[in-house]
Design a protein around this nucleic acid. Sequence first.
DNA 1: CTGAAAGCGCTTACAG
DNA 2: CTGAAAGCGCTTACAG
Lengths: 329, 329
Amino acid sequence: MATIKEVAAKTGLSPTTVSRVINNHPYVDANKRQIVLEAMEELGYVPNSSARRLRGQRTDTIAVIISRIVNPFFSHLIDAMEHVAAKEGYQLILCDSRLDKKRELQQLDLLKTKQVDGIILASLQNKWSVIEPFTKFGPIICCNEYDSNAKLPMVICDQEHGGYLGTRHLIEQGHKRIAYAGGTDRIELTRDRYRGFERAMKEADLAIDRALLFPSFYGIEDGKNIFQQIISMKQPPTAIFAGGDEVAAGIIREAKQFQYRVPEDLAVLGFDNQPLAELIDPGITTIDQPIKQMGTRAVELMVEMIKENHEVTYSKETLPLQLIKREST
Amino acid sequence: MATIKEVAAKTGLSPTTVSRVINNHPYVDANKRQIVLEAMEELGYVPNSSARRLRGQRTDTIAVIISRIVNPFFSHLIDAMEHVAAKEGYQLILCDSRLDKKRELQQLDLLKTKQVDGIILASLQNKWSVIEPFTKFGPIICCNEYDSNAKLPMVICDQEHGGYLGTRHLIEQGHKRIAYAGGTDRIELTRDRYRGFERAMKEADLAIDRALLFPSFYGIEDGKNIFQQIISMKQPPTAIFAGGDEVAAGIIREAKQFQYRVPEDLAVLGFDNQPLAELIDPGITTIDQPIKQMGTRAVELMVEMIKENHEVTYSKETLPLQLIKREST
DNA sequence: CTGAAAGCGCTTACAG
DNA sequence: CTGAAAGCGCTTACAG
């Protein structure tokens, strides 16, 4: 690759001037600017990004940490984020923690090693006390998942309300034995959702049967397993609130396989409003998360922080969740 | 951030020795090694990656260019690739071209700007003549999509055979009026699939009605639109071979909405064997692509090329495709 | 408007 | 086994 020196040599100008042209500085003679531009073109010159980063102390790159790229929720979030990032002149680096604490830690190191200007945590594996030391090295914000101990800016959804909305809907449909498969304590997001579930149940004077609480799972296979457990219960639930549409879809699929009618024999409620929810039969009643808005806002906030050299302090933007009624309930 | 100099100062050793410890060189006194390690720990030292890259002329990073991350095909491909890359000590950068030539070109520039050691093209927007000049700057390989003019290593699937397999299956089910919605000429991959369709039709002495050929589309909405077109035909097809499972799912969804029975009134065949294909009702008969194997192999090949300083020459590994029979045909 | 010089933080021959 | 020096390719005060 040609270097700035070669461009300088070819034009008879100094590297400084060439650099000024590259960086669009004012105060470069229009004529000389033209000459430099042509020389760069001819030599196929492109600035070496490592050198720029080393010298300029910025990378124009943002890392996003998620926990599972094959989850459509995350791929749509990434899609939305990338869109804004590109518009703002930033590159996005996708980091998949695969729910692994050590991997997340390695990915946070990108900030220390100066590979990125900031990190958006769309999932959260480590505790705040572990993450906190990294905030010294650049902006970190939460988007989607969160930890209320964390002194970080957050762009999140009102999960408690989501849990409440879904549960109340099931109750309104006449259900009294309601299973909950969103998990109760893995992370704060699931805890808050569960609190919404609790609130709705309490409001309706319904008891929560601990036998009907399932850990939070992600995939289709998990949904199938949950149905298998339900089918073998002496007192099965009449409705189930799943932790995500994929889980809901797995439950429905397996239910149909075993000649259960949805929603008559078992009502199923999802979460996320993924494209999938509308595709399967019956369509999944679900809680819509404003993914695009959340991703967009998180990147905007991050760019702002990087540019303004914001220090990282607590702030919280909460977006609303809404119920989408379909045929599975 | 602490620098190598500070570590050196703290230990009373030279930066050279510290560097040797960082890079696990032999010939460092075991004792001193220990001292350096402790100092790094205490200072929270992490090497600046831009400096390393600039000096070492390598990034240990590979870019993968895809055309649409929300396509489950690509998110699963990325997932498989990331898995191997991490194991081999490489970082993966996800580049979404969004089917845009200019964006793809910018992403190819990552090689020139030395941000990555190599590029895996999982989709292809530009012609070979446009891509060719970039091969001077580092290894580029094709994975999934391809261009047979390209003098590049490729890891691909036998698309012609896939098109043939699916079509023959529909013919065996007794269909004679078969629609094809995989596109006929956008890219070589779709062209080859279409050639398989043609071969099967010809073998069975069936005519291809041009009115039943649809461009290649991607999403659920496209599937719905296709069904709308079919429903308004005087001589509608009895079966349709879609370009992907999402399109097939869209067709099926819309068909059911209009009281069409699948497969009795319209048989639908997909492509990819995405999780979706098994979830919806009826399950989608589809052509399975060995995504994991393809992604794994591509990264292995790339790592090999980077390490061995392979020059980029033509080579081709073709993986087999197979028919998965479900209820939609 | 322009250029010489210093320096970002590393690693790699080279010499010992 | 160890260190001084050069240099990777840029950009940014500084001086003019």
